[in-house]
Amino acid sequence: SDEEKKVRDQAKRLGVNTEQLLKWARRQGDEDLVRIVERLLRS
């Protein structure tokens, strides 16, 4: 999905993997991002 591509691009920009991005999203309190990243991790 578009959202998932955006998440992957953001992880690349930050230089982190998906698990690290999830931690980062939780720290930001970004519920939408957390949900998308969790979906990516499960897929």
Rank of each mutant, 00 (worst) to 15 (best):
E4G: 06
S1K: 11
L22C: 13
S1W: 10
R27E: 15
R42D: 09
V16R: 05
V7F: 07
T18H: 12
S1V: 09
A11C: 15
S43Y: 14
D30E: 04
K5G: 04
L41E: 01
N17I: 14
G15T: 03
Q28N: 10
G15H: 09
R27I: 14
L40H: 02
I36Q: 04
R39E: 07
S1E: 10
L14D: 02
D2N: 08
R35I: 03
K6G: 03
A11E: 06
A11Y: 05
L41N: 01
E19L: 09
I36N: 02
D9V: 09
E31W: 14
D32T: 09
V34G: 01
G29W: 14
L14A: 04
E19V: 08
V34R: 02
E3I: 13
R27K: 13
L21G: 00
R39N: 06
E3W: 14
L21C: 15
E38N: 02
Q20F: 09
D2Q: 10
V16G: 06
A11Q: 09
L33F: 03
T18S: 07
K12I: 09
L40C: 12
Q28F: 14
K23Q: 14
L22D: 04
Q20R: 04
R27V: 13
G15L: 09
R27W: 13
D30Y: 15
E38I: 10
K12Y: 03
D2R: 11
E38D: 02
D2S: 10
L22H: 01
R39V: 06
N17H: 06
W24G: 10
Q20V: 07
R13G: 02
L14I: 04
K6M: 11
A25M: 08
K23P: 00
L22A: 01
A25T: 01
R13A: 06
L21W: 06
L22V: 02
L33W: 03
V37F: 04
V37T: 01
W24L: 07
A11F: 07
K23F: 07
A25Y: 03
G15S: 06
L40D: 00
T18M: 15
A11V: 09
R42K: 10
R26H: 05
R13C: 15
V37I: 13
L22I: 03
R13K: 06
R35D: 02
N17V: 13
R8N: 05
G29K: 10
R42W: 08
I36D: 01
L40W: 10
V37M: 05
L40M: 09
E4V: 09
L33K: 00
V7S: 07
V16N: 05
R35T: 02
L21H: 00
T18Q: 04
V37N: 00
E4Y: 12
L41A: 02
L33G: 00
Q28I: 14
R8E: 08
K6N: 06
E31I: 12
K6Q: 08
E3N: 12
K23H: 13
E19A: 07
E38P: 00
K12L: 07
A11N: 04
V7A: 06
D9Y: 03
K12V: 05
E31M: 13
V7L: 09
S1P: 09
R39K: 07
A25F: 13
E4H: 11
G15P: 03
Q20N: 07
A11H: 09
W24N: 12
D30A: 14
K6S: 07
L40V: 05
W24E: 15
D9H: 08
Q10I: 15
V7E: 03
R42Q: 11
Q28M: 13
L22E: 01
S43V: 12
L41G: 01
L21Q: 00
R35H: 02
